[in-house]
């Protein structure tokens, strides 16, 4: 009997889960169901990252998306539900162009996937004596220092902008 490659098996399992949950987000009419399906999508994507040896990205995914963004979204959905009273429903419009566009994009990806991905030479594994997290940290403080600093500015801008918009009131036009 042929040896089962558990990595591949796990990959297909989680990838399938991600795709199915993403479709469920699309199909479900109740927005709360959609948010819970989003948890599944994020979780399975994080699992895929970990299977493919990108453990740093995987943990970041869990911490940032599931720990932060999703919880906020859930609070948002549930609190607005309370105010409104009724269920929040979503609807689909322009299904045909959307399906056509989606199929077109899928075709583009499918035809590209027919050829093997020519991965660049990243150097021998032995040179990387530092862990992934260490390497990322060193890169941030050296080569990508400007990007890191600029990200700080970007986050401050987003913070000020978001706080300001949240605090402002509609001014109805006469």
């Amino acid at each position: 009997m042929e040896q089962i490659n558990f990595n591949i098996l796990a990959f297909y399992g989680f990838a399938g889960l991600a795709v199915i949950s993403a479709l469920m987000i699309l199909m479900s009419k109740n927005i709360i169901h959609s948010v819970f399906m989003l948890v599944l999508v994020f979780l399975s994507v994080a699992a895929i990252y970990i299977i493919t040896n990108a453990e740093f990205v995987g943990v970041t995914q869990i911490m940032v998306y599931i720990g932060g963004i999703l919880i906020l979204m859930m609070f948002g959905v549930m609190l607005t539900n309370r105010i409104d009273g009724g269920k929040m429903l979503t609807e689909h419009r322009r299904i045909i162009p959307a399906v056509l566009l989606g199929l077109g994009l899928a075709f583009v990806f499918y035809s590209t996937l027919q050829t093997k991905f020519p991965l660049a030479e990243f150097g021998p594994q032995s040179e990387l004596d530092k862990s992934v997290t260490e390497t990322i940290g060193i890169n941030f403080m050296t080569h990508q220092l400007v990007a890191l600093e600029l990200t700080a500015v970007l986050l401050l801008m987003a913070l000020i902008g978001a706080a300001f918009l949240a605090g402002s009131k509609f001014e109805d036009k006469k």
Partner: peptide, 23 residues
Amino acid sequence: LLFYVALELVSITSYVLIAFSFQ
């Protein structure tokens, strides 16, 4: 990477600025 961060700085600022008419 720097290009992407700079581009997002411009775009996210633009999103906020569009909403600045307070209507």
